[in-house]
Design a protein around this nucleic acid. Structure first.
Lengths: 160, 160
DNA sequence: CGAATATGTCAGCTTTGTTGACATATTTTC
DNA sequence: GAAAATATGTCAACAAAGCTGACATATTCG
């Protein structure tokens, strides 16, 4: 039932003009970032849905592969989520043999995280389509120009 | 209880080397995109949490303000979510006076979406910190270089 | 008129985030 | 050496936002 809320024609409090580059706001880039990230994550999401994992698992697998030996605290700080959120997906990844925990040598309270061979392979499989997309998007850019993209992305991140 | 799963030292199936730029994969940019988007969304998230809305509401408010008069089908295609997911947040935005629905003129089945003044103001408030972040990240880039960023982001999006 | 389309809605499920509380092992501090 | 701080794990409950499947209504199209 196309709802009863719909008006027959715009009332006094209905704005019909687009929110454009007035107000000196960068709407175009805001929007492009949304679209870029939406499609950037769609490739690995499709792969993950087969194996019963989700985007949260992807992030953990990615970072543990990038920085083997990172502690749980490191990972929490990187992902900016709570340890209870992390615990759920991390446990699954450990139980299914994608990640190993090793007691810290200097500090035995720490649980240092390492990928297994299986974990390394999964990380690579997920990174491949993303890298393909990036390579394609960067084709046509000169090497110097490609560096600017990285510079921009880093500048978008909060300090610390 | 620091779990019993932890090994005392790396076993045979524990990979200790970082997943680096071997394998011709663009790990750096993959990672930078994650960090950039993580912090990019953190500003509006903080604002929204006060008013009881979430990131999903933000997206709807943004696009309805950018393209007033868009149909529900347009919005679904833009966000790439199901209509049941959209229905929940859209209803809340309509009920609380941020968005109006107007019956389509040519096709009366359509519900064209427009922001109210309140809706326009919210969209602006949410865009402001994001735009500030972008402007800051782009400072130090020449105008020609800034255009490259947009070109890259557009190239990251799936065709159509 | 019948089929297709645009939208709405009910019900239930999943993933991934949150808070709060508490337990254990280990290290650091006094 | 005892006490405090730290690193991690875990239980329970809840919330946001995605999903599927099924079905209803109004309108348009063929």
């Amino acid at each position: 039932m196309p709802s009863e809320r719909a008006q027959k024609s715009p009332d006094a409090d209905t704005i019909t003009g687009p929110m454009a580059e007035i107000d000196d706001i960068d709407f175009d880039i805001i929007e492009q970032l949304f679209f870029a990230y939406r499609d950037f994550t769609s490739d690995p999401d499709a792969i993950l849905s087969k194996s019963g994992f989700g985007r949260a698992h992807h992030r953990v697998v990615h970072f543990v592969n990038r920085r083997p030996g990172m502690t749980v605290a490191d990972l929490l700080d990187t992902l900016k989520i709570t340890k209870q959120s992390l615990a759920r997906v991390l446990k699954q990844l450990i139980d299914s043999g994608f990640i190993n925990q090793v007691e810290g040598v200097r500090d035995r309270r720490q649980r240092r995280l390492y990928p297994t061979r299986k974990g390394r392979e999964l990380a690579l499989e997920l990174a491949r389509p993303q890298s393909r997309r990036i390579t394609k998007a960067l084709s046509g850019f000169a090497p110097e120009e490609q560096k600017l993209i990285g510079k921009f992305l880093r500048a978008m991140v909060d300090p610390q």
